[in-house]
Structure formats: C-alpha cells, structure tokens
Simulated assay, not measured.
Amino acid sequence: MERRKRRKKIEYPPGITRDLLRTIHHIVFYHGTGLYKILARATPEQDVEHVKNPCTRRRHWTEGNKRCRIQKYVDEVRDPLHSAMVAHYPLLHTILTLAMAYHTGTHNPEATKPIEKVLNASYTLKEDYSTIKKNYKQLARAIAHHAREQGLITDEEKTAKVMEQAFEKACKIVDKLLPELPKLTVERAKIAEKALEYYTDDPFVVLRNAGIDIEPELEEFREFLAEISGKRAKPKETAKTPRTLIPSEVLAIAKALEYSGFSPDALKRAEEDLTQRLDELLGDPEGNALEIAYTAKLLRLLQKGEVDKIKEFAR
C-alpha cells in the first residue's frame, strides 16, 4: 500500500493565526443584520430594509453546516496571508454598492455587479486592503467602466469621480471597524464579528463598549449619499454615547486587552501600538496634549501590569 501523503505543514506569517482566520471567515461569510444596521445610519432614509435590497443574497446555512464551512476553510488554507486579506472586502463591497445604488437609483442587486467584478479581480491578484487604498482611483475607473458596460450609467467619467469619493469615505468607515493587516488582532476582529453578525440587536452598543465611535464617518457618508442622489437626509438620530474624553483609539486598545483576558500576545501588541501612537502624537505635543496624556497613562498601566486599573480605564 502506498503511504498516505502527509499534508504539508502550513507556515503562518507573523500576526496571522488559525483563530484569526476563523474569525475573518465568520465576518466574510456570516455578516448580516449588524452590518446593515450600521450602514442604515449612513443613508438618508436610515432604513435597514433599504440597505438590504441591493446588498443581500439568499443564504441557506444552518448553524451546523456553518461550523463545518469554517472548519473546512481553516483546515484547507494554503496561503494564510491571502486568506486573511479578504477580511476587509465585504465591508468595502457593501459600502461601495450603496454608493452605486444611490448614484444610479438602482436599489437592487444589479448595483453590486460592477463592484463585485472589480473586487473579485483585486482579491485574485492578492491585493490587500492597503493596496486597494493606494489604487482606489484606478479601481473607481474600473467600476465605472463595468457599470457603463452593464447599462447602469451613461457618463463613465462622472461615475468614476463619484466612486472615487465613495472609496475615500468608505475607507474611513472600514478603518474604524477593522485595522489593516498586520495590526488586525484576533481580539479586534472579534469585536467587528460581534458588531456585524446576524444576531446583533444593537451593533452600536458593541462598538461603543469597545471604545469605537463610528458616528462621524457614517454621518459624512450619509451626507455624501444625499448629495449624489438628490435625496434630503432625515434629521440625524443622536446616539447615546458615554461622556468621556478618552480618545476612542486608546479606549479600543484597553477594551481589546480586557476581551483577550490580558494574554501575553495581546499585551505585547498593545504596548507596541501604544508606543507607536505616542511617538506619532509627540510630533505635535501642544495640539495632541490630551491624547498624549491618556495614551501615556494606559501605556504605563500596561507596563506596570496593573490589570485592575486597566479594566477601570476601559470603563
């Protein structure tokens, strides 16, 4: 009998683990109501169903086969970095689809086809999120070209400019929800997973509890959609936010530490992030005085191992 071929051992790049890939796969394949509720806040109507129309497809996955799909994905990974790159794609895809829907007045799945073609090509070429942000003007032109070929639009140049703006504003939202690789940790990905999934009643509570304030970016996108569609935006619904002066990015690091159970890897990554952030802020010490103070405070608590005080800081 021939010996059974042994599966080649997968080498994971620094910062990418099986747990991270599992969480990313869940975000990609099983995002749902949470994401639509977040993006509804970014539309003139602020209506979840209006967001779902161009963005959803039928799914027939049970909890059992969902677990099997995730396990299969993690077990059969051949290129962990390429598999991790997909993390940001569903967010970009959905937000850009909304822009196309409002630009063309096509609030059905036809609006997503030009976006899908271009992003599928980007993923095939192994372009990560940072590459997409650098090449967004070229991608916007490609989307406009496909939209004209599809018959959605007639003025390709005008649509390319609209999609350039859409990319710029979409990336601000994505940046708040999911940091770029390799800064995307399991803890940070799990916050996004919880906020975006099907069974989340209020994703804004999830995000605020993690110190993430996405309201300014959503409001900017809402104004953009109202402008390109000629629709009057409804008065903004003011979300209840905790009264705190702590910068959201610093609070997010403290929350992520708490969610991770203060694991050694999370502590190390947090110290690196805080040190880098402090160095950047010191470029303008007067303008960044408050942020410097809170960043330095959390960094010192972390270095001294004062877990209880970090938990108190996070609240």
Rank of each mutant, 00 (worst) to 15 (best):
I310W: 02
I292S: 07
V250W: 04
K52A: 10
P109S: 08
P114S: 02
H50P: 06
Q71F: 11
I95E: 03
L299F: 12
R4N: 06
L299D: 12
F29S: 09
H88S: 03
A256Q: 06
Y73R: 05
E76G: 09
M100H: 00
E249L: 06
T112W: 00
K194E: 11
Y136K: 12
P80S: 07
E180Y: 11
G230W: 02
I10G: 05
L299P: 09
Y36C: 08
G211W: 05
A84F: 05
L282A: 13
L278F: 06
H145L: 10
P44C: 05
D284Q: 14
K5Y: 14
L298C: 03
Y12E: 01
E157R: 14
Q276T: 08
E193C: 10
P264A: 12
K176F: 00
L91E: 07
P13F: 00
T154Y: 13
V77L: 10
L299G: 08
I143W: 02
S248L: 02
L281A: 03
R58Y: 12
L225E: 01
I16W: 00
T104D: 02
V205K: 13
Y123R: 11
L181G: 02
S130W: 12
H50K: 15
G32Q: 05
R58D: 14
G32S: 09
T244V: 12
V307C: 09
Q165T: 15
I310L: 03
L299R: 07
S260V: 07
A270F: 03
S229P: 04
K9E: 11
P285S: 13
L119I: 15
R59K: 14
M85C: 03
T33H: 13
E258C: 10
D175C: 07
I173E: 05
G283Q: 12
H82M: 10
E156Q: 11
E76A: 07
I253F: 04
E149G: 14
R277N: 01
L152T: 02
E180G: 03
L281K: 04
K5Q: 15
L39A: 09
A101M: 07
D19F: 00
L196F: 14
H26Q: 11
K72Y: 09
R57Q: 10
K126S: 11
I253Q: 00
E164P: 00
N288G: 03
A84Y: 05
L39N: 08
L92F: 15
L91P: 10
N288F: 00
I132F: 14
K194V: 15
L125M: 13
F262V: 02
Q303Y: 08
K183P: 01
V162R: 01
K190L: 12
L245M: 06
T56Y: 13
T154S: 14
I214K: 03
Q276Y: 11
K66M: 10
K137V: 01
K240D: 12
I173R: 03
E156W: 01
K133C: 15
L290K: 05
F224W: 01
E220F: 00
R232Y: 09
G105F: 09
T23H: 03
I214F: 03
E219S: 11
V174Q: 04
Y89L: 01
A256E: 09
V250G: 00
L96E: 06
A170D: 04
T106H: 08
E258N: 04
S122L: 14
A189D: 09
L181M: 12
L267H: 06
